[in-house]
Design a protein around this nucleic acid. Structure first.
Length: 891
RNA sequence: GCGGGCGUGGCGGAAUUGGUAGACGCAGCGGACUCAAAAUCCGCCGUCGAAAGACAUGUCGGUUCGAGUCCGACCGCCCGCACCA
């Protein structure tokens, strides 16, 4: 069918000189419109299928950084896309607002933590709003809001009642800079995760959450988290650290000073190596060591030395295996005539297993080092499968692999696995008194979560200490236990301890004078359930279980890999604790997890080499000549060195302020750029050139639509089925399908590439339609393509999309428009072009009907001139045809 | 030490998961428009070669009609955990 040219009504040459898109004017305008229409407020009663997308909420440190921009841009694309796809989307935002920096600011700048925090929230909220994120701000809260921590205190009491909270005296990691206790997870390389100070060990009475109650469950459920990165699951698995072994009891011989004990219980994962035992070793903090210390000054001194040894990486690597004989002798469990010495050793940890081990030097490097130092026997008991029993020996390297048992009496010739089972059965069946000599035991590396912090700016632990009644929970009707405002920060330590009146309170049970608990909760508690609170933040109770169950789990959670263990493991535990206390029915909080990469930037240094001072990218200009990039100071023209690409940090001054970018290019450019190029899980390199590229794209899209808008108005969008316009419709619909898939897989960099391709292919038609009369069907197809383009780019550059959408004459918002549906007929190719290989080397191309049968393909292939030349008269042995893919001729 | 990941142009990265390696972007080069610049538009852009073609996905080998993709060994980076018995 030939399309008859239709007269153009809206043809206007003057419109050709289109002005540039001005995001500074347009972005706030659309944001206001979204607000006014409450486009992003979510109704819990909406019957459509739910989708909960959440980005890790920020700590209100002062200003947002590029990491936030990336995180929230990623989440916003998902939220907008899912909304368009018809889901009832929950996309809330809040503030992880308790924590040390507020107290540091109070100390340094004489500003109250509350004032500082809420001011920061205000600033950052403004910044986030400028990004045009599709957030439901009506559900916003900060964890330092009394309303929030009130419910956290309720949860604490419920957990206490369920026995999930307890108090014990324990050795704790003490951060001498922050003056507080740290959980094991918060100690990195022997240093505080926040302060970086070397951590000391102190004995304190602490509150603990019984996370170990769920060790096995937390481990098992990792397998169900299919939409989590494998890496994170593995990290958690290792952290939980399950091992299968045995507890074995070693009788202390009557001849030795037993200090009231009759046995030493060790934990081992290698009972098979029992005949290779040559000593026992206990930790310096082992109860037996403490008893011996009372009467033995040498042991006491040695234990003291062990306690003070550094736990840093360097200290551990160089630390010599050291020990001291306690004089205690024990009997081998399988041979009562065999006696071994018990040492105190510096490499035995009190908080793993039982704090006591048996040393098998041939099978463990540490034991071997120790045995060599103290001239203890080294008897090889396991030999690799292909080893020679006559020559196998252990020198300076222990053999800790599997293999065949040797020198092990009745175990000789068995495999290590068989030997394990034989020993386990034997020891479980042999009694000492009325206790078996040994028992199988699963052990976990995971410890209970110590949550006490000796800080002011945190959620108060709602208990009261009474001299008569002991620990008394604050009755629920007396909650919240509010933080007092009148506190001082001029001295180190916990301001709550120093408060003149706050801690004094009557005991709820007996009415006598009693004292409030002055410890506050670890801020990781706050972030362990905020996603649940978002489902109904107005509730009196911590949750509305029906509502929470409907929204949870979070379908897509997005944040940094740095939370792979701490926050994500705590949240998994806390959700289970809330399940046990009846607040939710779900078990796993996050169905899908995505860990994004960092935003990194080149560094610049002025002056000589490694000692030069860091220079901000804002203070330099880059020159490029002869393929070399050089940087110069803007101020005095001095050359500065271009350094490595690093995570943006204040100390290296390679920070780009999102405000500056939004001010000069607009939010859409910033969003589009952080989504381009790099896959979201990898680091993205921030560069001026890259941002300008993204900005060029926004301008180009605007210009193309603006120019063509009049020519495309007044007609109904419709894809073409034939003629010149067919290619346009095909390109649009194929891109639509592909980009939808990319969004589903969070492959935003690929979506960006495909959108560029579509814009490139629509550029000429859009220019053409603006300049010359075109048929109505052509314009209808082009309008359809342009609308698809605008809609698929909308999740990334929402303001620009609204602007373009309006230019095409739409009164409705893109944000309210359902996702377009692609036409399969247009996505399908009628003809396919297949490469033709001869012996695996490409020699020709064959274009043929998509549904041509095998024979037709072979005939057409052999008829190709290029093929005949390549074959050069040789006969083919066979021809491989992969339909619609490739033809390979084998000669 | 244990565990995991990655290696593709000058750069960021694509490659329908075994089927045309280098999509798209950045940078660069050439051209058009302009008095000029910016902006914009068009073209080129892995290496060698005049071309035909050859060589190219860290290195070496293997499987296959066909390997960036699968297998083995090695080299090099990155991340996590770490005296866990």
């Amino acid at each position: 069918m030939k399309v008859s040219p239709t007269p153009l009504i809206f043809w206007n040459v003057k419109k050709m000189a289109t002005e540039r898109y001005n995001p500074r004017e347009a972005e706030p305008r659309w944001q206001e419109k979204w607000n006014a229409e409450k486009v992003f407020e979510t109704d819990n009663g909406d019957p459509r299928e739910k989708y909960y997308v959440l980005e890790m909420f920020p700590y209100p440190s002062g200003r947002i950084h590029m990491g936030h921009v990336r995180n929230y841009s990623l989440g916003d694309v998902v939220a907008r896309y899912k909304r368009a796809r018809g889901f009832n989307v929950l996309h809330p935002m809040g503030w992880d607002a308790f924590g040390m920096p507020a107290e540091n600011a109070a100390r340094d700048n004489k500003v109250h933590p509350k004032t500082w925090t809420y001011q920061n929230i205000e600033t950052m909220k403004k910044q986030l709003k400028a990004m045009g994120l599709s957030l439901d701000w009506s559900r916003e809260f900060a964890t330092c809001d009394v309303d929030y921590y009130h419910r956290q205190q309720m949860l604490f009491l419920d957990m206490m009642e369920k026995g999930l909270v307890y108090r014990k005296e324990s050795k704790v990691n003490w951060d001498p800079v922050d003056n507080t206790v740290l959980a094991n997870e918060q100690v990195i390389d022997g240093r505080g995760w926040r302060s970086g100070a070397l951590v000391e060990q102190r004995e304190l009475t602490q509150w603990f959450f019984k996370i170990t109650e769920f060790s096995q469950e937390l481990l098992d459920a990792l397998d169900t988290l299919e939409d989590w990165p494998e890496k994170v699951r593995l990290m958690q698995k290792n952290w939980i650290g399950r091992s299968e072994g045995m507890l074995i009891r070693w009788e202390i011989t009557p001849q030795t000073p037993a200090h009231g004990e009759s046995e030493v219980v060790v934990y081992t994962t290698r009972p098979d190596t029992l005949f290779g035992a040559s000593f026992l070793a206990i930790a310096a903090d082992h109860p037996l060591a403490k008893k011996i210390s009372e009467t033995n000054p040498a042991i006491d001194a040695f234990c003291e030395e062990c306690r003070h040894a550094g736990t840093s990486l360097a200290a551990l690597e160089t630390a010599e295996k050291k020990g001291m004989d306690t004089g205690i002798r024990v009997r081998h469990p399988l041979d009562s005539s065999w006696e071994l010495s018990v040492y105190v050793a510096n490499f035995v940890l009190m908080d793993y297993g039982t704090g006591a081990i048996f040393g098998c030097p041939a099978g463990d490097q540490r034991d071997l080092d120790f045995a060599r130092k103290y001239n203890l026997p080294v008897v090889p008991v396991v030999m690799p499968k292909d080893g020679d029993p006559d020559t196998f020996s252990v020198g300076d390297v222990a053999y800790d692999g599997d293999g065949v048992m040797i020198n092990s009496r009745f175990l000789n010739g068995k495999t290590t696995t068989e030997a394990f089972e034989i020993i386990a059965d034997k020891l479980s069946g042999t009694m000492i008194g009325n206790m078996p000599q040994g028992e199988r035991k699963v052990n976990f590396r995971l410890r209970d979560w110590g949550i006490s912090r000796q800080r002011y700016w945190g959620c108060p632990i709602p208990v009261i200490h009474c001299d008569s009644c002991g620990i008394v929970p604050v009755p629920k009707q007396d909650l919240p236990v509010k933080l007092p405002d009148d506190v001082t920060f001029d001295q180190p330590g916990n301001p709550l301890d120093r408060h003149p009146t706050w801690r004094h309170v009557a005991c709820p049970q007996c009415g006598q004078d009693a004292r409030r608990e002055t410890d506050t909760m670890d801020t990781f508690v706050d972030s362990s359930w905020y996603f649940t609170r978002f489902t109904a933040p107005w509730e009196e109770q911590p949750t509305n279980p029906a509502v929470a169950n409907r929204w949870l789990p979070v379908d897509q959670y997005i944040g940094g890999i740095e939370h792979a263990i701490l926050h994500l493991l705590y949240s998994r535990f806390y959700t289970r604790a809330m399940r046990e206390t009846g607040h939710v029915d779900v078990t796993e909080p996050f169905k899908g997890l995505f860990t994004q990469g960092m935003v990194v930037h080149e560094t610049y240094r002025r002056g000589s080499g490694q000692n030069g001072e860091w220079v901000s990218p804002a203070d330099i200009r880059i020159e490029e000549a002869d393929g070399k990039r050089r940087a110069f100071m803007l101020s005095d023209g001095d050359e500065v060195l271009i350094g490595s690409i690093e995570k943006m940090s204040k100390s290296k001054k390679n920070v780009i302020d999102p405000d500056d970018i939004i001010a000069s290019y607009g939010a859409d450019t910033a969003r589009f750029f952080v989504l381009s190029d790099s896959p979201p899980e990898r680091d993205v390199i921030w560069s001026e050139a890259g941002v300008e590229g993204a900005h060029r794209f926004t301008q180009r899209l605007y210009r193309l639509i603006a120019e063509a808008a009049e020519a495309l108005s007044g007609i109904v969008a419709a894809p073409a089925s034939e003629g010149e316009a067919l290619a346009i419709s095909q390109a649009a619909h194929r891109t639509l399908k592909a980009v939808s898939q990319d969004y589903d897989r969070l492959a935003f960099n690929k979506a960006v590439a495909r959108i560029y391709e579509l814009v490139n292919s629509l550029a000429a038609p859009l220019t053409k339609v603006a300049k010359e009369p075109c048929s109505e069907s052509y314009r209808a197809a082009l309008r359809n393509a342009a609308e698809i383009l605008i809609q698929i780019v909308a999740p990334m550059t929402p303001h620009l999309a609204e602007e373009c959408w309006a230019m095409l004459g739409h009164k409705e918002l893109v944000a309210h428009t359902p996702w377009p549906v692609h036409d399969d007929a247009l996505v399908q190719e009628n003809d396919v072009t297949m490469p033709v290989q001869v012996n695996g080397k490409k020699r020709a191309e064959l274009t043929i009907s998509r549904d041509a049968d095998q024979n037709a393909v072979i005939q057409a292939t052999l008829a190709l001139e290029d093929v005949q030349r390549a074959l050069n008269g040789q006969a083919h042995k066979k021809i491989i045809v992969v339909p619609q893919r490739i033809v390979n001729i084998v000669v």
